Simulated scan of single mutants.
Amino acid sequence: MSRGSDQSRPRPDDRERKRPGLLLGRPFGVPVYVTASWWIVAVLITLVYGGIVQSRLALGPASYLLAFVFAVLLYASVLVHELAHSLVARGYGLPVRRIVLYVLGGVSEIDREAPTPGREFWIAFSGPLLSLLLAAGAFALAHLADPFSVPGELLFQLWIANLLVGVFNLLPGLPLDGGRLLRAGVWKLTGRPHTASVVAAWGGRVLALLVVALPFLFAWSAGSAPGPWAIVWGVLLAGFMWMGATEALNNARVRARVPGLRARELARPVVSVPADLPLAGADRRADEEGADEVVVTDAGGTVVSVVHPAAAEAITDARRAWVPVSDVARALTEHSTVSADLEGEELLTELTRHPLPEYLVREADGALLGLLRASDVNAVISGRSPRRG
């Protein structure tokens, strides 16, 4: 089933992750990938559902071809569902990285969280709403077709696929869309998005336990033993939901620390030195001025690079007297500067827009305050203290 929208916050030194699979296309400009794990579900659906089609239509080997078409329709329904999330998110100005279809459904990777509970609600609800509308339309058309014909079977498959995707995703627990709806409601009532995320994530964990128990409960009520396929699917879905809920809890803890990010407080003190100064001289200057970092200037006094700590440490004491700082410095770019007044979400947004290892922190008048390392930001949002020196 669909995982819905994934609005986890990237860290400031995240790079674009590797392509997760085969690029299917870019509908409405959104890249859509399918992973190799999709074939696992496609084969299972074909084998299991093919026998059902054969009993209904007696098509022989073609029954398995029609069953494979159902697997394709199921994932096409997931794709339409995810596109609804993505387009509504983009309509609210939130960047959508891509859609990924995988073994248990799909996910829309949205790079920022919705700023209000109302927008969170509509981004989450758009997917199930479209799925249920498609299910209703296909259900109506199916009643106009012969149920024992190929078109009738395909229409039956289409409304069943969309009904499954829509209803399953309305279950009230993260990482499902229903979990995001629950989060939006709790957020609206309490005004605390962190609390809302924790409630919705624990809702997902409770649902995961119920999904594991359902095959056994149904079998017990029928006075029989649960089927092996029911147990396998129950465990798979429950595992997916439990891991997604756990990830949501971790993300909630991270987001709770974001308001504490302040560029001014995280900036490391720096000393500026000319490019031809030996490392030994830069070390002395840094010690004298109590600086943690060394930045390198050109002939005009403009900061052009930053001494790379690992590269500098690799230089032996005997060589530091004649190796210039420029040899162990990393060049800065046009995006290597942030304002000292940036805090919280604004600071994180600026850093993730142009992920770099370090940034110059400047006052409003252009004066250099210090150096901000992405590793220090990651340490804070991970609950650790930044390393200095």
Results as ranks from 00 to 15, higher is better:
Y92R: 06
Y33E: 12
P61H: 01
R253M: 08
A314K: 09
G344N: 05
L144I: 00
F216R: 02
R183I: 01
A263T: 03
V78E: 12
G185Y: 07
E265T: 15
R384T: 09
W242Y: 11
L130P: 10
G51Q: 14
L23E: 07
V307A: 10
A286Y: 03
A67K: 13
P115A: 07
L348D: 07
E153K: 04
Y49T: 02
L369N: 00
G166M: 08
V53C: 08
P27L: 06
G21N: 04
L134D: 01
V377H: 13
E288L: 15
V30F: 09
S55D: 14
P386W: 11
D287E: 13
A329S: 15
S375F: 05
G166A: 08
I45L: 15
G93I: 03
W39N: 09
V34G: 13
Y102S: 14
H143E: 11
R387L: 13
G203R: 01
A252R: 07
V186D: 05
G185L: 15
R205N: 05
L47M: 14
A196K: 02
W39A: 15
W202G: 02
N378R: 15
R284V: 10
P215F: 04
R255E: 14
S197C: 01
G227P: 07
S336M: 09
G50H: 08
S272H: 02
L170I: 09
G389M: 05
P226C: 03
E293I: 08
A282G: 06
D111H: 05
L372Q: 14
H335R: 11
A136W: 01
E247P: 00
V206I: 15
